[in-house]
Design a protein around this nucleic acid. Structure first.
Ligand SMILES: [Mn+2]
Ligand SMILES: [Mn+2]
Ligand SMILES: [Zn+2]
Ligand SMILES: [Zn+2]
Lengths: 139, 139
DNA sequence: TCCGGATATTAGACAAAGTCCAGATTGCCG
DNA sequence: CGGCAATCTGGACTTTGTCTAATATCCGGA
């Protein structure tokens, strides 16, 4: 698989392929997430998108991230009680969270095995399994 | 093992055994959590403790829950982006979260096996591993 | 019993994340 | 160009949680 280069132009196609109308703001927000391949909070997205001069409102940032989420373009990571992170990596994977620094990184799911989970009630479907390894700097 | 009955009187001993000075407010808050054995948010604790007549301030509820956390009396569960849950069950276990209703329940860790996690960098210690199964009502 | 310091509680101001709304802008089609 | 739907916007608002300075409670020693 060749390495993808996330240009703004590519973003339009990515958005369309997820049934999202590619507007200027949406392209910028997608570009912020995908070009970095990092976990970003709404605030961070906002800051990145508005570095040069203010272009995108807070409402649009939140609306757009929610839209991306609904359309399956990004994933939500809930590890920090004070803010949500948005993850451009939607393939199944886990997370390593450094509680001191707030640094969040991916753990490849390939070799991780979770077994022995009890069966779900019939009327329930699994939406996802989140595995978070919380670590701290050694004293 | 006999079933523990969480009376207010027992709470004082429990607090002392965790090196917490048992004050009236602390006993009430511990009692709210331990007598129910449920995951409660700060708001819910506040409501429970102040049902009859207002007795405990918001600041004290937050201060006390943080103290309980530091002293290892309760555990924090971060699954809902909008609020933290406090868990009187500190034995290792996992969680089942119903995204629609917000209902949070325990998964016994006994039979769950997690294998294949990559080794940590030398200067890091695991503080905990959170496994959250997110489920949704079937359509 | 009275005093003084340490510990705990409090009201309410404050901060940060996120939601909501009503009015503007944009893009598109006839 | 004119109309309509979709999008974006500033800013008010809500909720969760933190902070602070004043008060209250507790406790050990004189
Ligand atoms: Mn731009
Ligand atoms: Mn009482
Ligand atoms: Zn990730
Ligand atoms: Zn639990």
């Amino acid at each position: 698989m060749t390495r993808m280069h996330y240009t703004r132009d590519n973003m339009a196609g990515l958005l369309r392929s997820h049934d999202i109308n590619p507007t200027h703001q949406r392209i910028e927000i997608a570009h912020a997430l995908f070009s970095r391949q990092e976990h970003l909070s709404a605030d961070q997205v906002m800051a990145i998108v508005n570095t040069r001069h203010s272009e995108t409102s807070k409402a649009t940032v939140y609306n757009t991230l929610k839209l991306f989420l609904e359309k399956g373009l990004v994933r939500e990571v809930i590890v920090d009680p004070s803010k949500v992170f948005f993850d451009p990596n939607t393939s199944p994977h886990h997370h390593l969270y450094e509680v001191d620094s707030g640094k969040l990184s991916d753990i490849d799911a390939e070799h991780v095995q979770i077994s022995g989970l009890p069966p779900l009630p019939d009327n329930m479907v699994t939406e996802g399994i989140d595995l978070i390894v919380r670590v701290r700097r050694k004293a």
